[in-house]
Design a binder for these strands. Structure first.
Lengths: 327, 327
DNA sequence: CCCCTATCTGGAACCGGTTACACATTTAGT
DNA sequence: ACTAAATGTGTAACCGGTTCCAGATAGGGG
């Protein structure tokens, strides 16, 4: 059906082997021959079949990406970072949403391998590490970490600490931490770090649990101000929860940031769109994705890499849900 | 390296052809043989190589998806709908963000085909239709339409009309429509429909242009209330712009919905998280994605489909950025 | 002018599946 | 019991590239 390398060979009056050599710049090819082949390729609009290539070479131009849920606004930025960087190098992305389910992760992993992907970028729970352990292709963890695997992630410890320090510095006295699911490692870490930092200060601390999703967040947050009527500072486990809290605060007639300050986590795009703008801890999601892509490509090319952990810095983004520094 | 069909054949004491027949339930296979093969597969944990299969059969288990930008919150829902439905049927997704750029669309399209994808789901501008016209594999348009290609999309005409009718019904007298980029067809259609509906009423109409992105929205909307100080109703081209408008309204000291009502478009997840909750026109994004996946699978299986256009209904979601009906 | 090497090219095997076909063995029908 | 049809299995070719190897030609040095 489609144009094959033998069609090109015939058109150029050479053998398939020669076309292949011209195509890959491998071995010798006389200048005239090369030109004839290139012309034939042009004329027939030939595009080599990646599948055949992949079968013989035992390696494709595909990278598999496993993410918890692309519907959670933190992950599209990661994915975009990965994809943009990968594209420049000629790689394509097969993507799978796992919903944090081991079964789905394994399912995608298996089929990725069946498709000869040359590398895997995964954002999965450490408890599921077994499936990634003895793969014959490189794996890079993204956002999450698993022992002995290279990883790109943001500094949760610093992030949690930073959020706590800021809210203390800005004068909150009874602080409620909204803790996300403890199974999600980075979310748990930022909680622990915030908690420890707050504990060293003379403030009251409340802890409330919440899902990370849109649906879960509004529910968990409903009773917040009934349960802790005197809370005047809130550290949310992510921006979605923070926005839900802001919503609830306004509903409860509390002014943000005058009555209650709120700090989110992630710095997803909506932060600067909501009113008041949401102060937050920024994770450089796009850069994390791009970095993971960069590492996986190096690994695929068998470059030897000195480091295996790439911890990116977070920063406090001041908007309007916290009081102005120095006020 | 990996286990091949011949390894399984040797283990089971049969030929590769027999293993293949058992695997695919094609041709005959004695019950004992079948069992021996299945045992061998189990024992060796054999997973057939999709690449080899794809090469011979000239068709893979891959579908290509081209979206403008996964970072825009409307698209992840689409993608998720596609993926979830595809997964159930054993298909995987190669994904590409185009940023509406023809060059990138073509680039992805070409490589998708090189990878033997069996179908394409695309959300691209009608002006770029040429590249999709004479493909030998099925194409389904998603969110956008192109003549003569099957498409799944939401009813923009109805959506634009609905938004206009609602805001009239709820009493706004000077209505500002924020028009998105006119090149983006569905966005333009909803504008036209709103505009036409409003024109039949005795109200003043303003039109303001804006990008659809987070970055663009806040900028475009900055001068809104200076330019149209008497506007008391706003129809935004999407929810992001609507949220930016809400932000700006509150910043300008105008109460929503008392002083100014706002209706968004899309019903992305943040709508119910912001304060006040954003009334909007809901497009069933997840369902659209799932439907597109369903159609592409049927097409791949050479089912003959009676319809080629699947227009899904939109609905008005009432939240708090509009006054209560009947008040 | 000869030999050695560098350059150039095609044939054939290979990657790991699938399937057409040939051949062998059952099973069934009369 | 004898043939015809149904069942069961292996061999080999094929999908579209890549690469090893052998053979051919050209170029360079002595």
């Amino acid at each position: 059906m489609a144009i094959t390398i033998r069609d090109v060979a015939k058109e150029a009056g050479v053998s398939a082997a020669t076309v292949s050599r011209v195509l890959n710049n491998s071995g010798y090819a006389h200048e005239d021959t090369r030109k004839a082949v290139l012309d034939a390729i042009q004329k027939l609009n030939y595009k080599p079949n990646e599948v055949a290539r992949s079968l013989f070479k035992q390696k494709s131009k595909l990278i598999g990406l496993i993410l918890p849920d692309i519907t959670n606004p933190f992950f599209p930025a990661l994915a975009r970072g990965v994809e943009d960087h990968l594209r420049e190098e000629g790689y394509r992305l097969i993507i799978g949403n796992s919903d944090e389910q081991l079964k789905q992760e394994i399912d995608y992993l298996d089929t990725f391998i069946q498709h000869n992907v040359v590398g895997i970028i995964a954002s999965v729970n450490e408890a599921h590490s077994d499936m990634l352990k003895d793969l014959k292709i490189p794996v890079v963890m993204l956002d999450r970490t698993i022992e002995n695997l290279p990883a790109v992630y943001a500094d949760q410890f610093e992030g949690g600490k930073l959020a706590a320090e800021k809210i203390l510095e800005l004068g909150s006295k009874e602080i409620t931490i909204i803790r996300g699911p403890v199974e999600v490692r980075p979310v748990y870490e930022r909680f622990v770090s915030s908690f420890q930092t707050l504990r060293q200060a003379a403030v009251k601390i409340n802890v409330l649990d919440s899902e990370l999703t849109f649906q879960g967040a509004s529910k968990s947050v409903k009773m917040l101000f009934d349960a802790y009527p005197n809370t005047d500072g809130i550290l949310a486990c992510n921006d979605i929860v923070a926005v839900a809290v802001m919503n609830e605060a306004q509903r409860a007639g509390r002014k943000v940031p005058e009555d209650v300050q709120i700090i989110g986590y992630d710095d997803i795009s909506i932060c600067e769109l909501v009113y008041p703008g949401l102060s937050t801890i920024r994770q450089p999601a796009y850069e994390m994705g791009a970095k993971a892509a960069e590492i996986i490509i190096k690994k695929v090319n068998r470059e030897i890499l000195p480091y295996i952990h790439c911890k990116l810095p977070v920063q406090f983004i001041e908007r309007e849900s916290t009081r102005k520094v120095g006020k």
